[in-house]
Amino acid sequence: MPKEKGRTLVAQNKRARHDYHIDATYEAGIVLTGTEVKSLRAGRASLMEGFALVKDGEVWLQNVHIPQYTQGTWTNHAPRRPRKLLLHSDEIAKLIGKTQEAGRTLVPLSLYFSDGKAKVEIALARGKRTHDKRRDIAEREAKRDIERALRRRR
């Protein structure tokens, strides 16, 4: 059986980049059960309400919805159970210090398979205020209008 290569995206949290200023990103392994892996390979997951927290020197992914595997029997998993993230100890030490600062949180950005192993990209982030979100939208629309005008001139 050939080894799986490359990166296969399963789920993405597009709302996170809208709601948060991203300071740093980390790639973490994730501890899953067999039926969770099967469900992810079917492309089913939601990161919308997910977050991560550091507890007892470990990082845990909370509230991420991986639906039950349809062919799973009594071995099926709970859809929103806490899942342990696998990071290096120096990365965890940095996250402990950074998340204790006011207004900082850990949010999942994407869930994917990298060379056959399930990974999650988490971000150290600060929440945006409403006026920041409006300014970002205005900048994006202005850039889009400029590009549109340049295309017409050609």
Rank of each mutant, 00 (worst) to 15 (best):
L124R: 03
T105G: 02
G6R: 03
I92L: 04
R134T: 14
T99F: 02
A138Q: 13
P82L: 00
L47W: 06
E58Q: 10
I96N: 00
V54I: 09
F51P: 04
A149L: 12
D145R: 15
K55F: 07
E91Q: 09
A45Y: 12
Y26H: 00
H65E: 12
H21L: 10
L86K: 08
N76T: 10
G43I: 05
T73E: 01
I30W: 07
S110M: 08
A52Y: 05
V120E: 01
D136G: 13
D132V: 02
G116S: 09
Y69P: 04
H88P: 06
K117S: 13
I122E: 04
R154W: 06
H65I: 12
T25F: 04
D90E: 08
Q68H: 06
T75W: 15
A102N: 11
E36R: 09
I30H: 09
E101S: 07
L150H: 14
L150F: 11
F51V: 03
E36D: 09
E91D: 11
L109D: 00
G43A: 03
G50R: 05
D136Y: 10
L109Q: 03
R135G: 10
P82R: 08
L87H: 00
W74L: 06
V107D: 01
K84V: 00
A42F: 10
K5P: 10
E91N: 07
M48P: 04
L86G: 08
K5V: 09
R135E: 14
